[in-house]
């Protein structure tokens, strides 16, 4: 996979042009010469060569407001990922042999689960606010404004990431569920048959643990169904991968069709205005003509 950088050569060329321009200063650069006398301030604004823009702030330099939200969501997702990792570790410990230890992590797991679920909800809510007031996140009815389009695509990207995260979380939850159920089943097996006294004591303890586990399983199932809601909501935002809607050329065509539509609309309006102007001017032309014939 050959690549070749032309950056150095380009920079050389560029600096040689800049030098030659500097030597020609203060005659203004490029196309600004024409505008310089007319609206000097505006010309200064856009044509400052390599300007740092510290004095004049163009509106287009400022990112949309939701970029801050986006950064927050990124942080949220990082935190989520860490929480899931921690939960995973706790699950591992919980499944280790040694029954009474299990009780110790019980609370932690529950707390962490609730935390994760609420973090998911928070992320989902925040993602909804990306792109400001972009309505109809459906894939049809493309927003004509580019900034809206940007916002919607950021929303799609974040929703996709969150969805991946949520399915990872659910996979982990259900595998934990599976293993703890398995353990219970195994234990039920053992409890049949003859026991010594010590063993019976142990079984009694186990009963308590089993009740505990049941609660645990119920808890997880609840959190999963809660997540299901969030998940369904996210589903409306993401693109179905591998479909026409996911094609780059198709999306470009859609955008160009919508801008072309806008341009046509504009030219139509322009045409109408011209039409009106020509109507307005006609009488004066007539008078000129009349004047000419009279000469």
């Amino acid at each position: 996979m050959t690549t070749r950088s032309r950056t150095l050569l380009f920079l050389q060329y560029r600096s040689s042009y800049t030098r030659s321009h500097l030597s020609r200063a203060p005659t203004l650069v490029g196309d600004s010469t024409e505008r310089a006398g007319l609206i000097q301030h505006a010309a200064d604004m856009d044509d400052r060569p390599g300007g740092d823009g510290s004095t004049v702030i163009e509106m287009s330099v400022l990112p949309p407001q939701w970029v801050d939200t986006m950064e927050n969501i990124d942080e949220d997702m990082d935190r989520l990922r860490q929480s899931i990792k921690r939960l995973d570790e706790l699950h591992q410990k919980q499944l280790l042999p040694g029954l009474d230890e299990g009780l110790r992590f019980e609370r932690d797991i529950e707390r962490l689960q609730a935390e994760i679920t609420s973090q998911f909800r928070q992320c989902q809510q925040r993602i909804k606010h990306i792109g400001g007031n972009v309505r109809s996140p459906g894939t049809h009815g493309l927003p004509s404004n580019e900034e809206d389009r940007l916002g919607r695509n950021v929303q799609v990207a974040l929703a996709t990431r969150l969805q991946e995260l949520s399915s990872m979380f659910r996979r982990k939850q259900s595998s934990f569920l599976q293993s703890s159920k398995g353990r219970r089943a195994r234990r039920d097996c053992y409890s049949r048959g003859a026991f010594t006294k010590e063993q019976l004591v142990l079984v009694e303890d186990t009963e308590a643990v089993v009740a505990q586990r049941d609660r645990e399983i119920r808890e997880i199932t609840r959190s999963i169904s809660e997540l299901a809601e969030i998940f369904q909501d996210l589903q409306t935002m993401v693109i179905d991968q591998g479909t026409l809607l996911d094609r780059i050329d198709y999306n470009i065509e859609q955008v160009n069709a919508s801008t072309r539509g806008a341009v046509e609309e504009l030219t139509k309006v322009g045409g109408m205005q011209r039409g009106m102007l020509s109507i307005a001017y006609r009488p004066s032309l007539l008078t000129v003509d009349a004047g000419r014939t009279s000469i």
């Binding site: 996979m1 050959t2 690549t3 070749r4 950088s5 032309r6 950056t7 050569l9 380009f10 920079l11 060329y13 560029r14 040689s16 042009y17 800049t18 321009h21 650069v29 490029g30 044509d47 060569p49 390599g50 300007g51």
Partner: peptide
């Protein structure tokens, strides 16, 4: 391209075949 890049916005120029 270098001549018109007076705003010096170009960071990289590469050939990717």
């Amino acid at each position: 391209l270098a001549e018109v890049d007076q705003h010096e916005v170009v960071r990289e120029v590469q050939e990717y075949f």
